[in-house]
Design a protein around this nucleic acid. Sequence first.
RNA 1: GCCACCGUAGCUCAGAGGCAGAGCAGUUGUUUCGUAAACAACAGGCCGUCGGUUCGAUUCCGACCGGUGGCUCCA
Length: 634
Amino acid sequence: MGVNEILLLRSRAPSRKAPSPCPPRSYAVRWKAQFRFLSTPGKATEVHRMPVRSPSAQASPELLELRHRIRHSASHIMADAVLQLFPEAKYAIGPPIEDGFYYDFDVARPFTPEDLEHIETLMRERIAQDVPFIRTEVSRNEAKAAFREQPYKQEIIDGIPESESLYTLRHGPFTDLCGGIHVEQSGQVAAFKLLSVAGAYWRGDERNPMLQRIYGTAWESQEALDNYLELLEEAERRDHRRLGRELDLYSVHDEIGPGLIVWHPKGGVLRTIVENYWREIHTRHGYNLVYSPHIGRSNLWRTSGHLDFYQENMYAPMELDEQEYFLKPMNCPFHIMIYRSELRSYRELPLKIGELGTVYRYERSGVLHGLMRVRGFTQDDAHIFCMPEQVESEVGGVLDLTFEILRAFGFDEYQIMLSTRPEKYVGDLEMWDHATASLRNALEQRGLHHDIDEGGGAFYGPKIDIKIKDALGRDWQCTTVQFDFNLPERFDLSFQDSESHRARPYMVHRAILGSIERFLGVLIEHYGGAFPLWLAPVQAVVIPIADRHLPYADSVASRLRGAGLRAEVNAKSDRMNAKIRQAQLQKVPYMLVVGDRESEANAAAVRLRDGSDLGPLQLEDIVARMTSEVAAYA
RNA sequence: GCCACCGUAGCUCAGAGGCAGAGCAGUUGUUUCGUAAACAACAGGCCGUCGGUUCGAUUCCGACCGGUGGCUCCA
């Protein structure tokens, strides 16, 4: 979406990203990720036996603060241990984070797994000593002197305004510059574990030196730590890359190229269902669905501004007939050309042009990740061209559509962010104010809680972003609704108003699922691969008990397919038990076992994915049951 | 792109400077079975690619490609 994320970045003050020496005492208000999973417990191999949610989601504020203290103190204890092993190490910052903590060090060589073990041992010793944490206010000069060997601390001190007090925090022999809140005694760090080492730029800026960051987690009890570690394992079992392979949904190939997805038949079914649902609901909401090519001439991208500001994210041009063509990184210019293909009247507005548009972006190699971050992806893109007085109801319409769609996929809670005008912007103030107010009003009319990112909008317009959270605890931005005051100017868009004057339309970009690839990745993890019936690539497997039941099994599958259901027969020469196991592992919702009894009674013995056995049911009843389940998006 | 780690069969992973291995998956055959794994045989490999060291490299070294976890970025 949007024209140019790069400019958005540039428009932000650099100070926004600078880490504070100690994190503020307040906690970011965590939204509750609520996932609906199949609730029936299954056997040990069931992936969906445990609801995945961050342990922080249901903790009281008091407990959250205790954990914050424990984690912050654990980071100090870790720095203490690192300094014992590596006296030359320079230590940078070590804040608590969600579910844990980290500390960044400048060391001569990277940490090894063995180092982490030694560090853990030293940490345990310090915790067993139960030493007090002592906070002391110090003058600027005292602080500079105390950390004269620590260049990063010097930089932090220099970055703290003169008006603010400085504090040191000491436990045992280790002193850090820190005004944050901590436990009283090191013994209160009841349970911790170091998890990983990673490179991280000082102050998050790639022009700065890269430091070695150690991540750890710390909890108020061994039980809480164990629960967390179990959660991590569950998240790994739900990883869409693992499930994508196990359920035969998609693959990536060296030969094709990194970040380029091929969808296998089962993944193709899943995607087709999602896309057909999308098309149907968008048509119902008055969108005009279009198609546009994958490449366009350089002139188009010059006009849109992409060549000036986005080219580093674009695939290199192809030259044909002395013309340069670029793979499209965005759909906007094509939809604009459709708008511009005739003189528009105010009577035609709002005009909503939508497309499942596949775009290609040259993402940096280190950021690619399964389906979540790829180089070729399909946006559920649409652009709304409208008049000023239509803006609010159009934004409202997008929000209503968004929640209808997200609810159908089982997402019930969201984090909504409204981003307002940055320092550098295009368009006039009045438009910005009007657009921002309409975004806010549309949210408030619907009673939707949202946070405000002051100045966080793109240079070309304010926006609403909606995030959903995946099973690994990551927030994924799917939905985005952005005003654009830039492209209508660049392409000189207009319409004829009721007084026959030329007027400039408002343009709103919006994507609800964001990228189909990413959304399916989120969906795979959200359901742990156990898709609800309407999405399941295979809805029913017919399992003949012996080969003599094969003809009947085929007739059962045909009957289901005749009713629009996706059914397969497992005709392998395995025993029934093995076939049930295979269907279970493939998370097929319905297993229809047919033997002598069933074939005589025009029935099938129904076993559900959750292990329940419904016994023999008439085929008509099975079809009716499944069809109504599909109709309810259940 | 940067830092670290990793690339051996479709998957998970052993292995060792001198004949390439297991389990699962696959194929075939036997079995015809009542709610989570029948039995057997077979097949499967440029040990990521290129270069170097060596009598000999899948193994050691380097570069590249790809992956993983982060950083940065982002739909």
